[in-house]
Design a protein around this nucleic acid. Structure first.
Lengths: 232, 232
DNA sequence: TGAAGGTATAAAGAGTGCGTAAAGATCGCC
DNA sequence: GGCGATCTTTACGCACTCTTTATACCTTCA
């Protein structure tokens, strides 16, 4: 998984938080922290993390309670930490909606492996966020497919690279330098006529008219931007 | 979970199997058993259990190997059992595709709770199971069988590896680098002509025409993708 | 009004990538 | 050890994409 996952650590002990923050950050994860249960719940609601690490021994409210409230609206994977090794505790937490239970003290390598295992089976949220739509035009970045009125449009590498770049930032102007650098490489940032030719090809395939564009708008002297029918 | 889930226990020790069978059956689960790795794999392919309990210490083949083969075609949750408590072992298993790792001896209540936790998050995995179908073409990843209009197509290792890779992500473009890395290894990511030859062979065996493809579509300069008749 | 900078489009040549065939090398099986 | 299947290597024709070059247009400002 190349894109960084966001993790929320809910633990009252600062040294544990620090330990986890350092360990998880070094793996490339984005780490959020909360010292209390209520803070953790509001953070989970606001930031929508991809995984929650929850310590059962919190000062303000029972860890079980936090878990139950979280599960009322979220299916995010939860890894529970606890010093209590009692089997009853584990059963309660797991049946309360936790996905894994690790007893302190624990090996950091095992902990990280369990985090990876939990994140691995959770990419359902990531999948559906691709395929931005611009009215009759859809640009599916995951499938590398472009459709116009439902029919597929055949694009060459550079044509697709251009459209994908524009579609990644809908409505925003992408400068010519940016486009040239990403498609032709840093050595061709001055060959802006390359860009015009490819833009013309894409427009032709999309049935787009530069003077009254449906999709690709020219920003003279600056760059291009991709719009939808509702003028994003 | 009201309807009974089917569990597969792969363990060579009869007393462990008996213990688990009794414990799991008393919870209402349907329990299948296998004493060896190869038996476990074929059972998993035939019965499609909802969860697999896998002991790493099998007589005929390495548990890691069983896990790897299973993961080639199935997303079924796997709970690994082991007497070895080494952290390296745990990390290997979890990164190899296991969803949980329990060290023997273990408390049966905790074990059952972990089973429940794994089954709870399982329903999304069920949907994508079984053999993907592309009109007259079926690619059964579990049995390593490819059929066209109902008759089996004989494919070589590389040919099958290519088709399986494409069939794992229907409709999605798989880049040449990805295919070369997975089939020939990271040292041959530049030998794209290997790819063309194998693609040509598969196309020939499937009666597919590159210019108007039924199945394998070329994305020039990028890679290939597998489509169905309904233009996935 | 005319020149200049930036833009759109067309067309031709060069170069690359793709598909196919066939021969040599290697592996596995009997 | 021999044989067949599979994989690797080599070669070549073809289509397509990219680059290059050229020309017309449009807006802005002197």
């Amino acid at each position: 998984m190349s894109q960084t996952a966001t993790l929320l650590v809910i633990d009252d002990e600062p040294q544990i938080r620090k330990f986890l923050r350092i360990s998880l950050s070094s793996q490339g994860y984005k780490v959020l922290e909360a010292a209390t249960g209520s803070e953790g719940l509001s953070q989970a609601a606001l930031a929508r993390p991809d995984l929650v690490v929850l310590d059962l021994g919190l000062p303000d409210m029972d860890g079980q309670h936090v878990l139950r409230e979280l599960r009322e609206w979220s299916q995010v994977p939860v890894l529970v930490l606890s010093v209590r090794a009692s089997e009853v505790q584990k059963v309660e937490a797991l049946d309360g909606g936790a996905n894994d239970y690790v007893t302190k003290p624990f090996g950091i390598q095992e902990f990280l492996a369990r985090v990876r295992a939990l994140l691995r089976q959770a990419p359902q949220a990531v999948a559906q966020e691709s395929a931005p739509c611009f009215g009759p035009l859809t640009v599916d970045l995951a499938f590398r497919r472009v459709t116009l009125d439902g029919v597929e449009v055949a694009l060459t590498r550079k044509e697709y690279a251009l459209l994908a770049q524009l579609a990644s930032h809908p409505g925003r102007v992408i400068t010519q330098q940016q486009l040239l650098k990403d498609i032709w490489g840093p050595t061709h940032v001055d060959d802006s006529h390359y860009l015009r030719i490819v833009v013309a090809h894409v427009r032709q395939k999309l049935g787009d008219d530069p003077t009254s564009p449906r999709f690709i708008v020219t920003e003279p002297g600056v760059g291009y931007r991709l719009i939808g029918p509702d003028a994003i």
